[in-house]
């Protein structure tokens, strides 16, 4: 059973078609990189994998369960088996780093306080943040926040780990150390890891397989070597950081210049949940 299975996923944001018939599966124990430029739909895809958005059609199976149809309690249970390291870290700013990391354990397990304390500090050791448990997130640097977010993501020893742009906004040395951390986590814990990134160097360093997203479509899905050797022009453009000459739709272009809005384009969908 593959830990992540996406079938024919189609999604819309208002009237815009964001993801177009995306299918992929992540295998047990592999590092799977979802790569694409901004606007490729990779963040939207991640949010669907996390069950934060509902697709227009298609299905997302996480650890064998359809995340959009299972009951609330099963979903809660499922979520204790997956970890997420957000791009911004998303540490709770009102809690110390230690409390942030301990929160899932406090909420979901009946472990003894001593054990929770040891596990928390153990995870800080793993991400090389030993001794930072009592600091507040606002006292950490960008790289340290990412590390703390990793520590929180793996505190429940998840089977499946998602990382959103782990190296974005970090200097190359710190970014490389985060890549090493991802590799170590997979090797030691046998986790399956899904990484969303636009960073090519990082992607090729850690990936077993890469899925290239472009304008909401899967452009290619193959091993890292095969992607690098791909003859596809759009992939080579992406790899060589060439900007593409976008095809121009004269009607749409003129409308944009004249400031005429497409219907409903400016309407953001209302959030109906917290």
């Amino acid at each position: 059973m593959n830990p992540v299975q996406v079938k024919n996923l189609d999604t819309h944001y208002g009237h815009r078609h964001i993801l177009k018939d995306v299918s992929l599966e992540v295998r047990q124990g592999e590092i799977f990189v979802i790569m694409g430029g901004s606007g490729s739909g990779k963040t939207t895809l991640l949010n669907h994998l996390l069950g934060l958005l509902r697709p227009s059609s298609g299905s997302v199976h996480i650890l064998g369960q359809d995340i959009n149809t299972i009951g609330a309690l099963a979903k809660q249970e499922l979520r204790t088996k997956m970890g997420v390291a957000f791009q911004s870290g998303a540490l709770f700013s009102s809690m110390s780093v230690g409390d942030n990391i301990a929160l899932p354990l406090r909420e979901h397990t009946k472990l003894d306080d001593t054990t929770i304390g040891i596990v928390t500090r153990l995870k800080l050791e793993v991400v090389s943040l030993a001794g930072f448990a009592d600091l507040m997130p606002s006292e950490l640097s960008g790289g340290m926040i990412k590390r703390a977010a990793f520590a929180r993501a793996i505190v429940m020893d998840p089977k499946l780990l998602f990382c959103d742009e782990p190296s974005a906004g970090l200097d190359p040395v710190v970014a490389a150390s985060i890549d090493d951390l991802i590799l170590r986590l997979r090797d030691a814990m046998g986790m399956s890891i899904v990484v969303v990134t636009h960073d090519l160097d990082s992607a090729f360093k850690i990936a077993d397989r890469i899925c290239v997203l472009d304008k909401g479509e899967v452009l290619a899905l193959d091993t890292a070597d095969a992607i690098r050797a791909s003859p596809n022009e759009r992939i080579q453009n992406l790899l060589n950081r060439r900007t593409e000459e976008a095809e121009i739709d004269p009607d749409a272009y003129l409308r944009r210049l004249l400031g005429e809005k497409d219907e409903d384009e400016d309407e953001e969908p209302m959030r109906d949940h917290l």
């Binding site: 001593t114 153990l122 505190v155």
Partner: peptide, 11 residues
């Protein structure tokens, strides 16, 4: 063995 198991050994 997960982290809570390791933590018990540590303690």
């Amino acid at each position: 063995i997960d982290s809570s198991g390791i933590a018990s050994l540590v303690e």
